[in-house]
C-alpha cells in the first residue's frame, strides 16, 4: 500500500497564488499559511482517522478489497474508477455508499453520508488510489451512461433565486474571470485534476470535505436549493466531473482555499 499522501493544488488556488494585489482573495499571510500547509496538509490526521475507522468497521484494506472482489494489488486501480455501477447495490454508487454497504454487512450501523467520520473514511479509501490515473468508464453499462447524462443535465440546470447553473460559473466562457475576488476554476477541461483531488482540506472551512460536499457549498452560495449527498443527482454530478477529469492522477487529500 502506498503510504505517501500527495498534496494537490486546485486550479483556483494556483491562480489565486500567482496573482498579487488586493483584488484577490488571498492575502500575503494567507499565502504564507498555504505554503506551510503544503508541507503539512492538516487533513493528513483526518485521513489517518479514516484508516483507523476502516480497520475497525470494515476490516481494513483487506476488508474493502475482498468486498469489492479485488486483490490488494488490483484495488488501487479499481478504486480509481469510482463512482461505479455495482449490481449488489442496484445503482451507481460512490465510495461512501460502498462503505455503508460494507459496514452494514459487518453488522455495524453505517455512518451517515454527511458525517465527518464518513468523509475521513472515504478520503482514506480514495487515497489508496493515489498515483493511479482516474479511469472512470461512463460507457461501461447503461446505468453509467444514464448517470453521466443525468450529471450533465444537473450541471446545466438553471435554478434558484438567481437563476444560475453550475455552468453559469464554470463554463469555458467565464473560466479565469474573477467572481468577487475569486478566479473561477476550470472544472471540466479534459485532464483537469479537480475531481481527482477530492476529498480535500478546505482552508476556509478548516475541515476535510468530499466532492459532493463541495458541490453543496456552491449551491448554497449561489442560492441553488442544496440537494442531499448520495442522491442520484449528486452521484451523477460526481460521475460527470470525474469523467471530465479522466486520466488525471489521483492525489488525495487535496488542499483547497
Amino acid at each position: 500500500m502506498k503510504t505517501g499522501i500527495k498534496i494537490a493544488l486546485s486550479v483556483a488556488l494556483l491562480s489565486t497564488l500567482s496573482f498579487g494585489g488586493e483584488q484577490f482573495a488571498m492575502s500575503d499571510s494567507d499565502r504564507a499559511m498555504y505554503a506551510e500547509m503544503l508541507e503539512n496538509n492538516p487533513a493528513d490526521i483526518m485521513v489517518a482517522n479514516g484508516e483507523e475507522l476502516l480497520a475497525e468497521y470494515c476490516g481494513g484494506d483487506e476488508g474493502i478489497a475482498a468486498f469489492l472482489n479485488q486483490s490488494e494489488d488490483s484495488l488501487p486501480a479499481y478504486l480509481a474508477g469510482f463512482p461505479r455501477y455495482l449490481p449488489e447495490f442496484k445503482q451507481v454508487v460512490g465510495i461512501d455508499q460502498v462503505l455503508q454497504g460494507l459496514m452494514s454487512k459487518n453488522g455495524h450501523k453505517p455512518f451517515k453520508l454527511k458525517s465527518s467520520d464518513m468523509f475521513d473514511m472515504s478520503a482514506y479509501v480514495k487515497s489508496l488510489a493515489n498515483g493511479e490515473k482516474s479511469n472512470i468508464d461512463v460507457n461501461a453499462n447503461p446505468q453509467m451512461k444514464e448517470a453521466y447524462a443525468l450529471g450533465k443535465k444537473t450541471y446545466m440546470t438553471e435554478r434558484g433565486g438567481r437563476g444560475l447553473s453550475c455552468n453559469s460559473c464554470h463554463s469555458d466562457a467565464v473560466i479565469g474571470s474573477v467572481l468577487r475576488t475569486q478566479p473561477l476554476p476550470d472544472l471540466s477541461a479534459k485532464g483537469v485534476a479537480v475531481a481527482a483531488t477530492w476529498p480535500a482540506y478546505r482552508m476556509t472551512k478548516s475541515s476535510l470535505r468530499t466532492l459532493q460536499r463541495r458541490f453543496q457549498g456552491c449551491m448554497k452560495n449561489a442560492l441553488l436549493k442544496v440537494i442531499p449527498i448520495g442522491s442520484p443527482e449528486m452521484v451523477a454530478l460526481e460521475v460527470y466531473l470525474t469523467s471530465e477529469a479522466k486520466g488525471a492522477e489521483i492525489a488525495v487529500p487535496g488542499l483547497k482555499r
Binding site: 447495490f89 455508499q97 453505517p110 451517515k112 435554478r159 440537494i227 448520495g230
Partner: peptide, 14 residues
C-alpha cells in the same frame, strides 16, 4: 445492499 445505503431523493427539490 440497495436497502442499507442512503439514496435520498433530490428530483423534487430540483
Amino acid at each position: 445492499y440497495s436497502g442499507v445505503i442512503q439514496k435520498p431523493n433530490a428530483s423534487k427539490l430540483i
